[in-house]
Design a protein around this nucleic acid. Structure first.
Lengths: 343, 343
DNA sequence: TTGTAGGCGTTATCAA
DNA sequence: TTGATAACGCCTACAA
């Protein structure tokens, strides 16, 4: 309650309750080796004094920080543009909170600085585990972690990219199937995709799946790679719609681009969904708030965050983790998709 | 380069370079008390061995964690819905990165749990400073920090709410003036506002300013408080437009609600901007991507994050910080606002 | 059941 | 300029 000028240590608690520091330690960590009476007393005194173990001392003594590392790529524009990261953090944080773990966040200011941050964490022991995001093909981080198996690491990526590292994977190829089949069933035969950066692992996975499935179904398919920004989404849309025999449906890799694309269509006088169907890969409030509402591949990102946290805690605990799968995508139908126009 | 099975400590470096551990410590921290020759040698050896100071040990020895605490309110919906928090984190992280500080993030699962987290940080010493966000009127956190002046704390809120704590404030009242005057000049005389939760400090500040300025200008003004979600934004819009002599302009407290409101207007057959002007308080890609683009009060959130980080580093450094001001709002005109309709 | 003592890896003090 | 040595605060054998 009152402000404690000087930090209260385990010795203060020991003195105040008339026992030794070790008795206090035992009592507070719920370990055997101390009588119920003293334990109760110690707990009471500790509470009264407002004692909590000093984090650094505790970390030093048991080589455990109760922290999990997360590196965000620095691009405020991109980071803020997508609800994805914040949702993931919510899920991670919520689950970690239960076990009194926190999230240690750093920004990598340019591409490969992230490797340096990870090496720093390995050497300084500032985190107990870490999460790898946005893997690229042949990502150097995979190699780095392979060489440092003592650092529990979970990759959030398609299992084909993680070289056997503990992985939380999603069925992106399956989702491609759902989306394409849905459009096919609506009669669309010429579809396009406005994708994210080509070098990103999940772009690659989706690229491959789209090519394969559209070929199997005998559809025309075109793909433009962008940097995920709304400007790029609008621009790609314009280009796709400017040719003769333009696509009758466009799938966007994220919802910001889908929103920008929908606006662009309006500007061009192309009616959604009558003349053009629009779909978004991730689903969020934007798809809901847009007009017309945007049909999307929905997934539970917060849930993925929770799962990722649980898996990392398992790893820290020494348990084996192989490849786990996220909860699957589900198609959320809204007003932006309709049967393909005749002709 | 290679994987180091065992952690390398300062003693390993000392042994390998043939000096004592204290010499190593001096050399690596750039302190005097060691010859240039040995310093160079030690640095070389340390690099070769891949040595970095153990974080916990360092923190324990110098009572400095190089971490800054941030508590996020757990509501994945709300958190993800607004680009604000992620932008702020980008700014904070970018600036902290320069000084080798990191961000320690925890989620408060229900309202006043945040106090507990802060108390934990105070007692465990797990952060060197912390940032208070989303203050409410009479927020208990202010009191808490007043009683624990040893913990450097910066409040990101209107200075009138922070009881003299170091504060990074924004000129929300001024922004209200800009927005209202802008609409007034366009001929609007009946305006409405779709605001955030009433108990939030900045809602309160804006409420007061809106009331005052609209009264001064002799405008009709109505305000609905919501929970910031797109659903609430749409709903409020519907209610505002359903009465006779509906407002000719609506200002939303965030851009998600503005987007949802714009969609709702379309659904109701109300033309934006011909029959209804729409403005958003914060500006983001959503205002840009929307159709028509939404006029907004723009501010540099990433810049605020950077400033906040700098101020906290100052506080940690023992420097005085009073009340600093964010870079001001600027009106960003887009297509969603126009002269008020006749009648 | 309890207390003593050593270790975790740094930093910092103080003789040498 | 150096090298022991004592904090820092906690955990945990080990001894009493």
């Amino acid at each position: 309650m009152a402000a404690h000028k000087t930090k209260v240590t385990i010795f203060d608690v020991a003195k105040a309750s008339g026992v030794s520091s070790s008795a206090v330690s035992y009592a507070l960590n719920g370990k055997p080796g101390v009588s119920d009476a003293t334990r109760a007393k110690v707990l009471k005194v500790a509470r009264e004094l407002g004692w909590k173990p000093n984090g650094a001392a505790q970390a030093l003594a048991q080589s455990k920080t109760r922290r999990i590392g997360l590196v965000l790529g620095y691009d405020p524009q991109l980071l803020a543009v997508e609800p994805y990261m914040m949702s993931l953090i919510s899920g991670l944080g919520a689950e970690l909170e239960k076990q009194d773990y926190s999230l240690l966040v750093r920004l990598s200011m340019d591409g490969d600085e992230e490797e340096g941050i990870i090496q720093d964490w390995i050497a300084t022991g500032n985190v107990d585990a870490l999460l790898l995001l946005n893997l690229e093909i042949g990502d150097p981080r995979i190699d780095l972690m392979k060489h440092n198996p003592q650092m529990p690491t979970l990759a959030l990526a398609d299992a084909s990219l993680t070289a056997g590292l503990p992985t939380l994977t999603s069925d992106d190829a399956g989702a491609v199937g759902i989306a394409v089949q849905y459009l096919y069933d609506l009669g669309h035969r010429r579809i396009a995709r406005v994708a994210g950066p080509e070098e990103l692992g999940h772009s690659y996975i989706r690229d491959a799946a789209f090519s394969q499935i559209t070929t199997e179904l005998g559809m025309r398919y075109r793909c433009l790679h962008t940097d995920y920004t709304p400007e790029a989404g609008a621009d790609a849309t314009k280009r796709l719609l400017s040719v003769s025999s333009a696509p009758t449906a466009i799938i966007y890799d994220n919802d910001v681009m889908a929103l920008a694309g929908e606006s662009q269509a309006a500007v061009l006088g192309v009616k959604v969904p009558d003349e053009l169907s629009i779909m978004s890969w991730d689903d969020s409030f934007m798809c809901e708030a847009a007009h017309p509402g945007i049909t999307a591949l929905h997934r539970d990102i917060v849930g993925s965050g929770r799962m990722a946290a649980q898996l990392m805690l398992k790893l820290i605990n020494g348990e084996e983790v192989g490849v786990e799968e996220e909860s699957p995508y589900a198609l959320k139908e809204r007003e932006s998709t309709a049967p393909a126009p005749k002709g």
